[in-house]
């Protein structure tokens, strides 16, 4: 199964999105907003992963190559795109007016809230995957290129939905606690691993892949899925670490150097001297920047 007729427009859309993102981030920086460079890099990497999965050469036998493409277009790419907070960027860029209001209305609509409820997003993403591999859908997609292309598009969008629902970096409707998001990630990862292991012995119905191809593809799917899961888990862990750090002692940063008494003495003396300590305002401003970023309304 390949992306077929949607490959070219999707590739174009990805390249366009990367250019728009880079230009938008540059405009924010010129204006004086803080927008870390790493987000530009992450977004570009996400676009590159999706484009590579859609059109680039992927080594391996047919099923292994498909697993590789799926990993790039539907998992790694969307996860990177979601982490770059595209919605936040667009909302910061758009001037007050109809387009911005419309986008906010969509982002805060009950439908978006439901779709971005982590278990629902996981069901949409993993459910589509199970249907594709465990029903006649695969064989049908092979016969009808347009269906195959639409399925590819669905996998990309569902992957994006899942990553956004789990990471919750963009300002969307509804707050969702870390435990639910972590448990959803666990369940989705387990479902992915089980599906990969079941493909190791039995390919999708109505297909005839070589056994060695099937095994290599299933293992790629299994371990590739692990890599994306660890990436998403790291995003959640960093969020938790930052949140507990700020919450525990509001207003004051964690003293970074405390173990070495000599260093400690030096930092305390510099804090007591008339020179204003440089660490505190920087940390506070970053917090406020993040706060404004998550609620631009």
């Amino acid at each position: 199964m390949t992306a077929g007729p949607v490959a070219a427009p999707l590739t174009l859309a990805c390249v366009l999105a990367a250019v728009v993102y880079a230009a938008g981030a540059a405009r924010l920086r010129r204006r004086g907003d803080a927008w870390p460079w790493r987000r530009d890099c992450v977004f570009a990497a996400g676009c590159a992963a999706v484009v590579w999965g859609l059109t680039g050469p992927v080594p391996g036998e047919p099923f292994t190559a498909h697993a590789g493409r799926h990993l790039l277009t539907a998992m790694a790419g969307p996860a990177l795109l979601a982490v770059a907070r595209p919605l936040t960027l667009v909302l910061r860029l758009l001037p007050p007016g109809r387009p911005r209001r419309g986008l906010l209305r969509v982002a805060h609509s009950p439908v978006a809230g439901w779709l971005l409820f982590p278990p629902v997003a996981a069901a949409v993403d993993l459910g589509g995957l199970w249907l594709l591999y465990r029903t006649e859908l695969w064989a049908a997609a092979h016969r009808h290129p347009l269906l195959g292309g639409l399925l590819e598009l669905h996998m990309l969008l569902a992957g994006l939905l899942f990553a956004m629902a789990v990471c919750r970096l963009d300002p969307v409707r509804g707050r969702c606690g870390l435990p639910l998001r972590a448990v959803t990630l666990l369940a989705a990862g387990a479902a992915h691993a089980v599906l990969a292991k079941s493909l190791y012995v039995a390919g999708p119905p109505g297909t005839a892949f070589a056994a060695a191809d099937l095994r290599a593809g299933a293992q790629l799917m299994y371990y590739g899925g692990d890599a994306v899961e660890v990436f998403l888990a790291l995003v959640l862990a960093v969020q938790w670490y930052a949140a507990t750090g700020h919450g525990r002692r509001p207003g004051t940063p964690f003293p970074r150097v405390r173990t070495d008494p000599a260093v400690y003495r030096r930092t305390t003396i510099s804090a007591m001297s008339s020179r204003p300590p440089s660490a505190t305002p920087r940390r506070v401003s970053r917090v406020s920047a993040r706060g404004s970023g998550s609620s631009p309304a």
Partner: peptide
């Protein structure tokens, strides 16, 4: 067994990070 293995495997990864 397959489901328990999948859950355990994913839990290991998340536990390592957490």
């Amino acid at each position: 067994a397959l489901v328990s293995d999948g859950l355990l495997h994913t839990a290991e990864l998340l536990a390592l990070v957490a």
